[in-house]
Nucleic acid binder design. Sequence first.
DNA 1: AAATAAGGATGTTATGAAGCATATAATAGA
DNA 2: TCTATTATATGCTTCATAACATCCTTATTT
Lengths: 233, 233
Amino acid sequence: MRSAIKRPSDEETNLSGFQLFKKLTEEEFTRLNYEKTCSLYKKGTIIYREGSRLTGFFCVTRGIIKIFKTGIDGKEQIIRFAKKGEIIAYRSLLSQELACTTAKVIDDAALCHVPYQTLLYLIQNNWQFSHHMLQIVCRELREANDYITDIAQKTVRERLAEVLLLLKENFELDNQNTLQISLTREELANMVGTATESVIRLLSEFKSDKLIELQGRKIKFLDTPALTRVANL
Amino acid sequence: MRSAIKRPSDEETNLSGFQLFKKLTEEEFTRLNYEKTCSLYKKGTIIYREGSRLTGFFCVTRGIIKIFKTGIDGKEQIIRFAKKGEIIAYRSLLSQELACTTAKVIDDAALCHVPYQTLLYLIQNNWQFSHHMLQIVCRELREANDYITDIAQKTVRERLAEVLLLLKENFELDNQNTLQISLTREELANMVGTATESVIRLLSEFKSDKLIELQGRKIKFLDTPALTRVANL
DNA sequence: AAATAAGGATGTTATGAAGCATATAATAGA
DNA sequence: TCTATTATATGCTTCATAACATCCTTATTT
């Protein structure tokens, strides 16, 4: 049965929850729905690769996508994660450049592909859409600038603590304060910009300092205020 | 005579060279010119500060502006420099946040202030303007992402070489390959994300390796291909 | 022009973090 | 279920770079 090709559910094709599309007219929204294509993607799938030409952007309706750049000898630098309600691939599309990042599914995902033509149609016909889009990019730019400052000025220890707190803010926790997103130590290292061993060591330290608890890849927060102090925030 | 208040010249109030405004109608351009305010700023002047509320964005018609964030114990992180033809302060304005950077004049400048109202008017009435604006932000976002990868993965030596090459691409050279922009070693350090002493040492090394020549703050490029190799590009 | 401050150069030392080696544990594929 | 592969853990070593101290030089200010 596992080989049966599943179709996206209603929830997974529904874009009405996206802030970005809130100000569309009924006609525009209909058109968007008509022209979009939704698909399911298994963990590990590459959505697009660095250097490829994009034909549209994607709306994430389920799962988690890792966006990263490939640096020196193949080392990944994770730029961000995209989850439900967020869009990916729009940057390269808008600036009409080849993709400068790779997008990989890390939690089984559902994505809706919106063709470039549709994007352009919306930009041309609805200033509120453009305005919203501008705000999304501007916010991401601020985050990038903040990150540059952190990475340039903070220690690995501080950055790791900060990354953990960021994950806590942006991803689901279960009722026991355990992060539901599952990342390898290497992925954490690729966010922080350090070596895998350093992350392993520091996580153990955080654990013995009773800031977090570790069970495999699951991270449970025990003392957020103390972790915030470690992050130097 | 030095206390005489100079008015901006015609060239310094002329926005017709800006790509961003190329697609405005005559009426829109007239309105822009009517609502803008141009002024001259001496080196050292702060245009806006982190945390302040902005009332508009600025078009740089002369000089160089340093955009930076203040990190741990006041250490500056330089985000970028803006020169003639570029705009500043638009990011915070568009996302309706308080300024997250400070802008300081490092070469006597002329700026035209464009009120938020005018920006909104243009966004609402001219989709090509919005589209152009989107492209500007998207391009800056790519640069920020590239920079994150560099700073996270490259050595200080590589980053310094790269920064020098970036300056070479983006700022004027005289006929002897000497950079006209004048930066202190500390400012270079604040771009690269390192200590001032490290920049001093590495610049001397580059000099003895015959990659550059130094005379005070003036940097002359002797061997760009070799410098590119050092930058690991 | 003298005074004061700011920037630059260099040696020395300290240390955070990377790199390597190796062992164990966990996960996924056949 | 067994095996192969990948991830995690930990010790040890090395190295790049930060931090500190001091001296020298170049700008700014009065």
